[in-house]
Design a protein around this nucleic acid. Structure first.
Lengths: 191, 191
DNA sequence: AAAATGACCAGAATACCACATCGGTCATCC
DNA sequence: GGATGACCGATGTGGTATTCTGGTCATTTT
């Protein structure tokens, strides 16, 4: 029974359920079935534990996406597939959703910082993909960082903000169609 | 000397400078050079005064845009012009900027509600313009509300969020180029 | 001996209460 | 009769007493 792993699992569960601030180390210890002190033999402090949890999730997402990208397929197809994957894994983003909620509701500084870090991770990943697309002459010349920022914020707008003003969340197909028909379509190089 | 107008002017100034909560009725009375009680002969309460101020600004923006729209020009040209106008008038949005700041910092319920109202006003205006474009066969078939939402949120992302992660704000030309080359380009019907 | 544990501590967060401030009214004044 | 500001009740603020929580470490367990 890997104690370190148990702790990570428990921490993920607790952060997802209660957010950063409301998660106590004692809580995590209880979920992971270890003593409080044990946590500190594997992680320097609460913040480091938090970082490990988040980066684990981000890496999972990146690898998942990498696995799906088909170098032979067109940029539009790949973008479509990747976006679909992200949408299907909304559940797994529950942690991120909780963090965004905590950020807007309480403004916890550690969470704020972490969200910026997550944003920058994702944007630089997407930028890289866009730069690839440009190099392969599949998408128009553009500023990759700007476009990545636009894509990221648009995605968030539909996943997070939409619910705030509309009672029904947009379903995956609608979001996918919208992105494909406007953003991806605008980016694709006309041949 | 139009007392009602003086009050509106003073209120606009104060809300822009201090936000909703930090603006006191006495403050507004002082700026407008009237007695406190006088405000209540023209406005039912603080919230109504706030609404009048905001709707006055929204209507100004709508008329400004209407004036610029050229029914003979293409959708892309009009979108470009309208966006440029909005960008040039960032200063006038100072009130909106202040409200967004107050919303994220304090979460004042009246402000939150008002921002939702502003959002819905703008989105329904943009939706209308998009529906026009579709009817005139200038832009692709799409869900006007979804696209309007996307445009609005993207605009805000670059005006408000960009500064949070990048020290230099994006200049107008860059935003304009980005929108034209991706979103507007994607929406335009290929002929 | 090495790893795990939970009682313990200091500092941060919360709850509470006395007090000040502000939105809104209304008797008075011009 | 419209404008005014002293006044009122309710809401918000600041300062303090108390609780809670992250992190340590002497003791226990394996």
């Amino acid at each position: 029974m890997d104690r370190r792993h148990e702790i990570l699992l428990g921490a993920t569960k607790s952060f997802t359920l209660f957010g950063y601030k409301a998660t106590t180390i004692e809580q995590v210890a209880k979920i992971a079935n270890v003593g409080k002190g044990t946590i500190y033999t594997f992680f320097k402090n609460k913040e480091e534990l938090f970082q490990e949890v988040v980066f684990h999730l981000i890496n999972e997402m990146k690898h998942e996406t990498d696995r799906l990208i088909d170098t032979n397929a067109s940029f539009m197809q790949n973008a479509h597939t990747a976006l679909m994957k992200m949408l299907q894994f909304r559940e797994r983003h529950l942690l991120f959703a909780k963090l965004i909620e905590e950020e807007t509701a309480l403004g916890t500084p550690e969470v704020q910082q972490m969200l910026l870090k997550i944003e920058s991770e994702i944007i630089s990943y997407v930028s890289m993909r866009i730069r690839n697309g440009i190099a392969k002459d599949e998408i128009i010349e553009c500023n990759p960082e700007h476009v990545a920022f636009l894509l990221f914020k648009s995605y968030l707008a539909f996943i997070v903000d939409w619910q705030l003003t509309h009672n029904e969340p947009l379903n995956e197909q609608e979001i996918l169609t919208l992105f494909s028909e406007t953003l991806f379509r605008g980016l694709a190089k006309k041949k």
